[in-house]
Design a protein around this nucleic acid. Sequence first.
DNA 1: GCACTATCTTAACGTCGTCAAGATCGTTAG
DNA 2: CTAACGATCTTGACGACGTTAAGATAGTGC
Lengths: 234, 234
Amino acid sequence: MKPTGQASARGGYHHGDLRQAMIEAAEALLAEKGLNGFTLRECARRAGVSPAAPAHHFGNLAGLLTAIATLGFDDLSDAMEQAADKASLSGEGRLAAIARAYLDVALARPGRFRVVFGQRGLDWDAPDFKRAASRAFGVLVAETRAHLAGGQAAPAAPLVTPPDAAGAPDLPFILFVWSVTHGFSTLLIDGQLDFLAGEAGREAMLDRHAGKLVCLLVAAVADSEGLAKPAGDH
Amino acid sequence: MKPTGQASARGGYHHGDLRQAMIEAAEALLAEKGLNGFTLRECARRAGVSPAAPAHHFGNLAGLLTAIATLGFDDLSDAMEQAADKASLSGEGRLAAIARAYLDVALARPGRFRVVFGQRGLDWDAPDFKRAASRAFGVLVAETRAHLAGGQAAPAAPLVTPPDAAGAPDLPFILFVWSVTHGFSTLLIDGQLDFLAGEAGREAMLDRHAGKLVCLLVAAVADSEGLAKPAGDH
DNA sequence: GCACTATCTTAACGTCGTCAAGATCGTTAG
DNA sequence: CTAACGATCTTGACGACGTTAAGATAGTGC
């Protein structure tokens, strides 16, 4: 049978690199309609492929979303690392830098961010996904510890596997940092703070408050440093 | 035509109080399957009613979810108010009490919490919903301000309309409190902190860290009180 | 040049949210 | 008392969704 459907419009029966094409289509669709309007069929449509084609590459919808979420975690890790390094050079605090980077990534791609931390089912056991998630958490842990240590020194071995952190004495600080950053990002993304924007728009509201919020966070971690540590170290 | 379908099993053509029955079925379904497995048809099925029946009471799926979210916001407000009052009597801090109450509500009904702050579309313009959301934010504002004022005094007029808060000097503190609380709740609910639970389960992990986290929050707000205020008041 | 395997299409299934049209019931006006 | 009416619910249907099974096509290695 001649390829009379989508394949003919594309020029061949095989796509070539459908996996990448699907991911790009998915990102575009997420940016356009958000996670709510996201559809596997629409992605396949944009990739010029039948609805059943993605099954072989991703298994199912959860597989595609997991691939997107993996990219999202890596994006988060990269942005935090780069921001911390740059801030370290210019003398700013690394903690403030990663918090700001986290927020920026969330705001730049809210759809993808919602996939990472969203309700639609993911393959939590996918190796790549687990690795990406661990890396992002590792960056957070490393930077928070560097901040607690008082220096701008980048830790030599920044990779922290989650089980290591389970009993760490500075875990409350790490959770605190993550909670503030993630919470503010989530509230913003979900539109819960839109009533604060006024007529100036969200950007103005961000410029006004995000900086102060990060200052509060840094001050909080610095000031209560001795709270969770048994013996004083300063 | 005789009622041969769902109506006969119920005993009559009319239900009586379908609106309430749908809400109860929805809550049960959310508790059982979460927001992901939530379905309007399944709710109607459990209420013993045809799939099109809820349309007249809620308009569409968003209408039903908005009704649930309204209950969720009211639940949040009530829990925070009661916790603050009780804590005030026993001498504890009201701020720590509302943070803990927020977390407890989220953990007690994660499905409903995800409806309130979730991705599935809601009718943001529904009057009841707006009122409930404003009330919850108002409680947060009032308690944070009471804490900043240094006393456990409950404010006489706790209702704060959102526009009032847009230019308030203590807004960063309020956002800070909300971000920490909401962020930690969200991370927990979404299973992002499950790897910290270990073999002891999530309850043990909560008992270990939630308290310290709230302590950090309270200390942070108390310590950096003078940061956003132009003139020192202590 | 041929089998083999990966890749993609077609067709279909069951489920979903929603709508239009009709049936039923409670209520109220005459 | 009854007839009309509006509110409530059912039925049946529509298009879209995710997923699957079976078949067609293309690149690859022998």
